[in-house]
Simulated assay, not measured.
Amino acid sequence: MTTIEDTVRIPPSRFEDPLEEVAIQTLNEAYNGSLDKNLGLLVNVNEIDEIGEGKLIMGDGASYHSVVFKAIFFKPEQQEIIDGEVIEIAEFGAFVRIGPMDGLVHVSQVTDDYINYDAKRGALIAKESNKTLDEGDLVRSRIVAISLKDNSTKNTKIGLTMRQNGLGRFEWIEEAKRKAKK
């Protein structure tokens, strides 16, 4: 959660609506999904702390208000352990949705075992242990590389690994816990 100061434009068609509600909606439309290298990805503007008196600009019927608002950001951190869902399997690895962003687990980082790609099934299969990774699987991984570029998530790259104890598909983690108890 971060506090930000800015100016918000309220169009004349919205003058009858509650000012704070319109300001939050306008700020969300303007900023949701924007990326800042220091703060991360802006997920939501959820609260207005201060809203100044509106000012009019000649030739524009809208009112402009100084605002101080709170915004929620998602910023992945190096070595952070994060849960996510496998959204796509490719020959070179698995794309994992981690909150509002996606990361990649390269095939070399799925398990210690040799991995084969099953094109028919769209899955990654470990040769010796027969562990499988399919679209829709829930996984726990560690962030090993981050590259935040521009102001867009399109050029953002997040590298993940699941090759450590306590990481991988949730079923693998539970199975390892059961084996450890025996």
Rank of each mutant, 00 (worst) to 15 (best):
G103K: 12
G122N: 09
N130T: 03
N130S: 11
T132S: 12
V110F: 13
S108N: 13
A119K: 12
L133Q: 06
V107W: 09
Y117P: 02
Q109G: 08
G122K: 04
N130D: 14
G103M: 13
Y117L: 00
D118Y: 01
N130Y: 02
A123C: 02
D113C: 04
A119Q: 10
I115L: 10
L124V: 07
L133W: 05
M101H: 13
I125C: 03
D134M: 09
T132C: 02
A119P: 05
V107P: 06
H106F: 11
S108C: 08
V107R: 13
L133D: 10
D102Q: 15
D134T: 10
D112Q: 09
R121W: 01
A126T: 07
Y114D: 05
V110E: 05
G103L: 11
A126K: 11
E128I: 02
K131L: 04
Q109H: 13
D118H: 03
Y117G: 00
G103E: 15
I125P: 03
K127E: 00
D134W: 03
L133K: 07
I125A: 01
G122Q: 05
V105C: 14
L104C: 10
L104N: 04
S129C: 05
S108T: 09
R121S: 07
T111G: 07
S129H: 04
N116F: 09
A123Q: 15
M101V: 09
A123D: 10
L104I: 15
I125L: 12
M101L: 14
V105M: 02
D134K: 08
G103Y: 11
A119V: 06
I125R: 15
I125T: 12
M101P: 13
A126G: 13
A123T: 08
V107Q: 10
T132H: 02
R121N: 09
Y114C: 03
V110M: 07
A123F: 04
L133M: 13
M101D: 09
D134Y: 03
D112Y: 10
T132R: 10
G122Y: 08
I115F: 04
K120N: 14
V110T: 03
R121Y: 05
L104Y: 10
K131F: 00
M101R: 15
I115Y: 07
L124K: 05
E128K: 15
M101I: 14
N130W: 04
Y114S: 06
T132F: 00
A123I: 00
D113Q: 11
Y117N: 01
N116P: 01
K131C: 01
N130F: 00
L124H: 14
A126Y: 05
H106K: 06
D118Q: 02
E135A: 08
M101Y: 12
D102W: 04
L133R: 05
T111Q: 05
A123Y: 10
V105N: 08
D112T: 06
Y117T: 01
N116W: 03
A126S: 12
S108Q: 14
G122S: 09
M101S: 11
G103C: 10
Q109Y: 09
V105K: 03
N130P: 01
K131Q: 12
Y117Q: 01
V110Y: 04
Y114I: 11
G122E: 07
L133V: 14
V110N: 00
G103W: 10
L104G: 08
V107L: 10
D113R: 15
I115W: 14
V107E: 14
H106N: 15
L124R: 04
K127Q: 00
D112V: 03
L124D: 03
